[in-house]
Amino acid sequence: MAHIVEISDADDPRVDDFRDLSRADRRPDRPGGRGLVIAEGVVVVERLLASPYPVRALFGVRRRIEELAEATAALDVPAYVADAGVMASVVGFHLNRGVLAVADRAPVIEPAELIGRSRRLAVLEGIGDHENLGALFRNAAALGIDGVLLGAGCSDPLYRRSVRVSMGHVLRVPFAHLTSWPEDLKLLRDNGFRIAALTPRADSKSLRDAELDRGSVAVLLGSEGPGLTDEAIEAAEVAVRIPMVSGVDSLNVATAGAITFHAMIGA
């Protein structure tokens, strides 16, 4: 099981994986970043422990570490215990949730592999906001979407804030990166997918009539504000809109995604 290690000195190098998260956040594209996966809070840590991501260590106040005793029973990793003050000095801010875990990244899934084993997919373009991205993954998990394809302009779904907002579900919904955009959408068509672009354009088909619950379907979702690019919409077989009352022209992308995912499962 995870072995308890007491930490009394904030400069202890054994907790360097958890250090200065407010500044570097361990993203590979930021100074000091290492690309580690970071989970916050008991529920999200439990989901990390149940995921394919190899856990390196836990760090928390004693009460939270003890709450995770059953979930960590099969792990051979350190569980660092400190008081809230020492933990805040290490992390760089006071952590209300009281516990963190870090893991290495799992092997990257190739788009063809994900497409080949899926029937319902979300395809994202320009989703740069980490909270929107995390919320989309949470909605995808809740509504039975098989995976997420990340197109141009998307942020890292394993960024700490995205993991937190997704409540750890980004760790269970498989995702892959489309490196040539929108050319790689051809992979979907070659595998029998119907591609639907979600857009508020008046000439698009109503979601009620789009029959997204039939066959293999991939739905394109774009960023708030500009939405999908013209190139992405033109690459789809059908443009689809969510009917709304007069005076409201769009929804938060995570909300729009949830409504569309619900239509895709035919519920």
Rank of each mutant, 00 (worst) to 15 (best):
Val45Phe: 01
Arg34Gly: 06
Ala239Val: 11
Ser51Arg: 02
Val240Thr: 03
Ile242Trp: 07
Arg105Ile: 00
Leu158Lys: 00
Glu66Asn: 11
Val248Tyr: 11
His3Glu: 15
His169Asp: 12
Asn139Thr: 12
Asp25His: 10
Val148Phe: 07
Arg19Cys: 05
Asp156Arg: 03
Val45Gln: 00
Val123Glu: 00
Val91Cys: 01
Ile65Gln: 04
Asp249Met: 12
Ile4Tyr: 13
Glu237Ile: 03
Asp209Glu: 14
Asp146Ile: 11
Asn139Leu: 04
Glu110Cys: 09
Leu150Ile: 02
Arg194Met: 00
Ser166Met: 05
Met264Gln: 13
Val15Gly: 03
Arg117Thr: 15
Gly266Met: 09
Leu221Pro: 04
Leu251His: 03
Leu150Ser: 07
Glu110Gly: 10
Asp9Asn: 11
Asn191Ala: 10
Pro54Gln: 02
Leu121Ile: 13
Asp146Gly: 05
Val148Ala: 06
Ser180Asp: 15
Leu185Met: 04
Ala79His: 05
Ala142Gly: 15
Leu58Phe: 11
Arg97Asn: 14
Gly153His: 14
Arg34His: 05
Ala258Met: 04
Ala2Tyr: 01
Ala112Glu: 15
Ala10Thr: 09
Leu185Trp: 03
Ile38His: 01
Leu75Thr: 14
Pro157His: 02
Ala142Tyr: 13
Glu67His: 15
Thr179Gln: 15
Ser89Pro: 07
Ala57His: 09
Val61Ala: 00
Pro52Tyr: 11
Ile195Asn: 02
Arg160Thr: 12
Leu114Trp: 13
Ser216Gly: 11
Asp146Val: 04
Gly151Pro: 02
Val77Asn: 09
Ser180Lys: 15
Ala236Asp: 03
Ala141His: 13
Thr255Ala: 14
Ala135Tyr: 04
Asp129Tyr: 03
Asp29Leu: 12
Ala103Arg: 01
Ala73Ser: 14
Gly222Gln: 01
Arg34Trp: 00
Ser204Trp: 08
Cys154Gln: 10
Phe137Gln: 08
Arg161Trp: 10
Arg105Lys: 09
Ala196Phe: 07
Asp104Ser: 06
Arg27His: 08
Val245Arg: 13
Ala210Asn: 03
Gly41Glu: 03
Leu124Trp: 02
Val108Lys: 15
His130Ser: 15
Arg23Gly: 07
Asp17Gly: 08
Val44Thr: 08
Arg14Thr: 13
Gly32Val: 08
Ala256Arg: 01
Ala79Lys: 09
Ser223Ile: 14
Ala88Lys: 02
Gly126Met: 04
Met87Pro: 00
Pro182Trp: 01
Ala74Leu: 15
Pro78Lys: 02
Asp203Glu: 04
Ile242Tyr: 05
Thr260Arg: 10
Asp20Lys: 02
Gly60Asp: 05
